[in-house]
Each structure stands twice: as structure tokens, then as C-alpha cells.
């Protein structure tokens, strides 16, 4: 098992109801696996913000692993102790 710290930003934080949470995943889990787990754990509205209707990661959610942007479809694997930041879009006003 690996332990991941998830940091939510903007609308995602509001939808998750927490700013940070710890998640346990099996070894060889990808970012996509993490998003599926979070969507399942929290349900709507967080799940709808993270995943599209077909279950694929929303292309407008920015994902950072240790402050480096990754694209979930790349299949990047997570490592024990990784900090994953999930950022939903924001704008001016």
C-alpha cells in the first residue's frame, strides 16, 4: 500500500469539504486510480467535478504531483508519500 496526501484547491475544496486528506492506495496506483477512489468516496458533487460522464478525468482539472503538473491520461504512477494537488478552474471578476 502507498499513502498519498491530497490537497484540494478552489471549488474542489468546497465540494470535498476538506482542504487536505490522506488516502491509502494499492501499490502501482495511477493518478486516474486516485481520482476514481476520491469520486467514489465522496460522491457528488466532487465526483462530477473530477470525472466526466464516461468516468474519464475532467480535462479542466489541473493535477500536480509534488508541484509538477501531470496529465492523468499519461498513466503516471504514484509513489508512497506523494502530495497530489487537485485544482479546479478559477477566473477573475
Amino acid at each position: 500500500m502507498i499513502s498519498i496526501r491530497v490537497r484540494y484547491v478552489a471549488q474542489l475544496k468546497q465540494a470535498a469539504g476538506v482542504a487536505v486528506e490522506e488516502v491509502e492506495l494499492s501499490s502501482s496506483s495511477s493518478v486516474r486510480d486516485l481520482l476514481l477512489l476520491l469520486a467514489d468516496r465522496h460522491g457528488a458533487p466532487l465526483g462530477n467535478l473530477l470525472l466526466g460522464e464516461d468516468g474519464s478525468p475532467q480535462s479542466t482539472i489541473l493535477v500536480f504531483v509534488r508541484d509538477e503538473q501531470i496529465v492523468p491520461s499519461d498513466g503516471s504512477l504514484l509513489k508512497d508519500g506523494d502530495v497530489v494537488t487537485l485544482l479546479s478552474p478559477m477566473a477573475g471578476g
Partner: peptide, 8 residues
């Protein structure tokens, strides 16, 4: 950009 107490 901004949202609530956050910005980027």
C-alpha cells in the same frame, strides 16, 4: 484568477 480566499 481567484476563488473564495484562493488565487492563481
Amino acid at each position: 484568477a481567484m476563488y473564495e480566499l484562493e488565487g492563481q
